[in-house]
């Protein structure tokens, strides 16, 4: 029994509102990805069929995808985290450089409440989601936009979908590799040991 284990305490990381924003966004994104696979991958399409139903599910999950984040803006804690995700300090540059060189030592990975990778992921995914929403609407309301736009929107929607799928797989893979990070998102609290190691510049 080490001394460290005795002194570790639970630290509040996410409020209830923040966790629900994450949960509902994850479910909606999951529906988008699964239905997209059933529309797109021939093997899944043959397995599932029911194209009209799958299209309806995909469209409504996609339309609803930004709603949890917009609702989350009512929470002060959520808004504060958006501010943290937005702002990059000198330490984020250090973190990114270490990530590029595959340097995994904690000393070269300084991070506040969110590390530079998490900040980039959040901002990129927010932008990508809105691009998917925009191009999706252009494909859905076919009579609103000229034909050339629609074909182009399909092109962007398809390739960005593939990119988002890969990035999401990375996000989920990293979460699977870090039980304490998952506990933070599930219960709202993390151990002080973990916070000190992964987010040394975070002052809760």
């Amino acid at each position: 029994m080490s001394l460290r284990a005795d002194t570790t305490v639970a630290i509040r990381r996410f409020s209830r509102a923040q966790r629900w924003v994450h949960r509902t966004t994850a479910v909606l994104m999951g529906v988008c990805v699964l239905t997209a696979a059933c529309l797109y991958v021939p093997q899944f399409a043959e397995l599932v069929g029911r194209r009209a139903l799958v299209v309806t599910l995909h469209i409504w999950a996609g339309l609803a995808l930004p709603v949890p984040v917009l609702a989350g803006l009512a929470s002060r804690a959520f808004r504060a985290d958006l501010g943290r995700l937005n702002r990059f300090g000198p330490h984020d540059r250090t973190w990114l450089r270490a990530a590029l060189h595959r340097d995994k030592s904690p000393a070269s990975r300084p991070a506040g409440k969110f590390n530079a990778g998490q900040k980039l992921y959040a901002s990129w995914l927010a932008g990508a989601t809105l691009v998917m929403l925009g191009t999706g609407l252009m494909m859905w309301f076919t009579h609103l936009t000229p034909l050339l736009w629609r074909t182009s929107a399909t092109f962007v929607h398809d390739w960005l979908a593939l990119t988002i799928g890969i990035v999401l797989a990375g996000h989920i893979g990293m979460a699977l590799a870090d039980p304490e990070a998952r506990r933070g998102m599930r219960t709202g609290s993390v151990s002080s040991d973990w916070a000190e190691r992964e987010h040394p510049l975070w002052r809760p």
């Binding site: 937005n86 702002r87 984020d92 900040k119 901002s123 927010a126 932008g127 809105l130």
Partner: peptide, 14 residues
């Protein structure tokens, strides 16, 4: 407060 890189990435993606 640091640079608003997040906002730039968001708008850049759009």
């Amino acid at each position: 407060r640091g640079t608003p890189v997040g906002r730039r990435v968001f708008l850049g993606t759009l």
